[in-house]
Amino acid sequence: MEHSAKLISSEVAALWSAYMQNSMSHCVIQHFANVNEDKESNEIIQSALSNCRNVVSGVKEIFEKEKHGIPIGFSQEDVNLEADRLYSALFALRYIKYMAAAGTAASSALLEVLARNDVREFFSQTSQMFMQLYNDSCEILLKKGAFIRSPTLPPMEKAENLQSESFLSSIVGKHRPLTVIELAHISKNTETNSIGRTFVAGFSQTAKSSEVRKYMERGAEIAAKHETVFREILVDDGVAMPSSWDSTISQSIEPPFSDKLMMFHINSLSALSVAGYGTGIGTSLRKDIGGHYTRLMSEILQYAGDGVKLMIENRWLEQPPQNVDREALRNRNV
């Protein structure tokens, strides 16, 4: 007898999240495509659009087969293709690189919680798609001399084991040099804040709602503060500063995206920041760095929580699939 397994909760969660993220990114990249004037970037932008469409259609196909409700997600109602350019062409490329890296990591990480063959195959293909997009976007950024590299250190002369617990904390107020692992995560989290700061700055001048504008302004301040903290760690360690991201924003006040999309996007970036800080805590042996991450993570969680409340108030937050409310069923006739 052929076994026809139903979707398990982790598979539904993975598929639902993929639909939401890619329907949103498709809207953002549509705007980039519509205002793009760089011929070298066109192929990358079209590949990114294709990837997003493939993920959305793939999730829809599996859900329809299982008679599962299709998420609302984001549609043409959430993007204004008549709007003028808001971000630079270079920022669009860096956004696609960042999105492709996040898509690759998410798809790969999800595989361990997937059981059904068709779902595993779907996310395996998704991971490969976004990995190719990431590599292609890296190549064009390198060609343009615009790839942001993490700091370079002198080669290690020889391997050795730790001999003192002082490696974990400061010695008479002076911290030991950063490890390459700590440097890698500090650089990555600086990049995430740079992207977020650029996005919220553009969102703050184009949002229709005054509440959303204020929320975005607050986000820009938080991201700038976190960037400063990470850069000061590098300066104190005598590490060469990485080049800055191109955060050029036009003077356009015409919104290319709906307030709903902008709020969801910032919520997603906040989630990525929390995940990045969590990884940073787990891989940093210097206690002061762990302290910075913990403090900054708390601030992001508070900001994200306030954003969720604002989205709920405006009915912009789509409810994820959830378990059956047995108590409500029992009390339906009470």
Results as ranks from 00 to 15, higher is better:
Phe122Ala: 01
Met24Lys: 07
Asn193Phe: 14
Leu329Ala: 08
Val28Asn: 00
Ser244Val: 13
Pro154Thr: 08
Glu40Ser: 05
Ser164Glu: 09
Ser124Gly: 04
Glu227Asn: 07
Gly307Thr: 13
Ala328Asn: 12
Pro256His: 14
Leu296Cys: 06
Glu37Asp: 07
Met131Thr: 03
His175Asp: 02
Ser268Arg: 05
Val212Thr: 09
Tyr215Met: 07
Ile70Val: 12
Val79Asn: 00
Gly238Met: 07
Thr279Pro: 03
Glu191Cys: 02
Lys225Ile: 10
Glu121Leu: 04
Ala83Glu: 15
Ile171Glu: 07
Arg94Asp: 06
Ser17Met: 04
Arg149Leu: 13
Ser10Leu: 11
Leu7His: 01
Ala48Gly: 01
Glu318Ala: 08
Phe147Gln: 05
Ile148Val: 10
Ser107Val: 05
Glu40Tyr: 05
Leu269Glu: 01
Asn80Asp: 12
Asn42Asp: 10
Gly202Trp: 13
Lys39Glu: 02
Lys260Gly: 09
Phe167Leu: 12
Trp316His: 10
Val200Met: 08
Glu64Pro: 01
Arg85Met: 01
Thr283Arg: 07
Leu269Pro: 09
Val229Gln: 15
Asn135His: 10
Gly307Trp: 04
Tyr19Gln: 01
Ser127Ala: 08
Gln163Tyr: 06
Ser25His: 08
Leu7Ala: 02
Met99Asn: 07
Leu317Ala: 06
Met1Val: 03
